[in-house]
């Protein structure tokens, strides 16, 4: 089908884009890679009367590192992250996780910003952003704000971005010390979306005891969430012992599980146990081997 008619704007800087959004209110929609928005428009399920295309704003693309953190422009594609030599060296879980998204066409067009703002319950970036303590910069007609990933995913398909705001950058502190990060997902065989995906970061002391960890789960409930109870259980423990098993077991608590024809609630619950364990073990291996990151998917 062909979309409803809409007014098309392709501003060349962020301020101009924000001004158009402020003028038109919720009737206006931002266009990034279009991989989530355009199918909805073609079926006329979404009928925005104004489209603000961000593809001609160069400041929204690219990867920079300074002061111990990495900043990724919201319009950076999954593929650009997947192939970034800088990221492979600095924070290899990002390219590794990007490579697990959908297929090459989706990765060539889809953007990290679009994926975070859309807040799909089965999206990969939300889990990775939570595990890495990402900060999200928003620009709106009232100015700039920074939202922590922990406060960004509000509900099903609902992020903290207001209709008159644009996500501009994602900033991630580069973990230092004996740190390993992993993202492991059980992918839907058709779309590649996470039926369940678990991102884990572990920081170890010299005796392999866990100083700090962050565990984030996507695909299981309405939004990606952190498993804070499991993180607390790991603190101070030797990860060679049984603590990873116990943490994986408690990762399911507090999640209101989704169920569908492909994976029931009980099945997703079991996936969370299994993938939390795998992700923690992989992060632990990465930390002890000095490789920094691992990612894998099972279909």
């Amino acid at each position: 089908m062909i979309t409803e008619t809409f007014e098309y704007h392709a501003p060349e800087d962020v301020q101009a884009a924000v001004a158009i959004l402020a003028e038109h209110g919720p009737e206006a929609k931002v266009l990034a890679g279009g991989h989530s928005l355009v199918p909805l428009m073609r079926l006329r399920l979404a009928t925005p009367s104004v489209i603000v295309d961000l593809n001609r704003i160069p400041q929204l693309r690219g990867i920079t590192t300074e002061n111990g953190s990495i900043t990724i422009g919201a319009m950076t594609t999954h593929a650009a992250i997947e192939h970034s030599a800088e990221l492979k060296a600095m924070l290899p879980v990002l390219p590794a996780a990007a490579a697990l998204i959908g297929d090459p066409m989706v990765r060539n067009r889809g953007t990290i910003g679009g994926s975070l703002v859309h807040a799909d319950p089965a999206g990969d970036w939300p889990a990775v952003a939570l595990a890495l303590d990402a900060q999200l910069q928003l620009v709106g007609s009232h100015g700039e704000t920074t939202v922590r990933a922990d406060d960004f995913f509000v509900d099903l398909l609902t992020s903290a971005v207001e209709p008159d705001e644009i996500l501009t950058n994602i900033t991630i502190p580069i973990p230092t010390g004996r740190v390993g990060v992993s993202y492991q997902k059980f992918a839907h065989p058709a779309s590649g979306y996470a039926v369940t995906g678990v991102a884990a970061m572990v920081m170890l002391d010299d005796a392999d005891a866990c100083i700090e960890s962050r565990i984030a789960i996507t695909g299981a409930g309405a939004t990606a969430v952190r498993a804070t109870e499991s993180e607390a259980m790991l603190r101070g423990t030797d990860l060679n012992g049984g603590s990873i098993d116990r943490a994986a077991e408690s990762a399911v608590s507090g999640i209101d599980f989704l169920g569908d024809i492909y994976a029931s609630e009980e099945y997703r619950e079991q996936l969370v146990r299994v993938y939390t364990k795998r992700s923690l073990l992989a992060a632990f291996r990465a930390a002890t081997s000095g490789h920094g990151a691992e990612a894998a998917k099972t279909i």
């Binding site: 079926l43 399920l45 089965a122 099903l156 398909l157 309405a222 989704l258 169920g259 569908d260």
Partner: peptide
């Protein structure tokens, strides 16, 4: 309808919400 066909994956979570 169209929502049921493309939105199938998200319909039950939306109803739950």
């Amino acid at each position: 309808g169209p929502l049921a066909s493309v939105g199938q994956r998200l319909m039950a979570p939306a109803a739950k919400m």
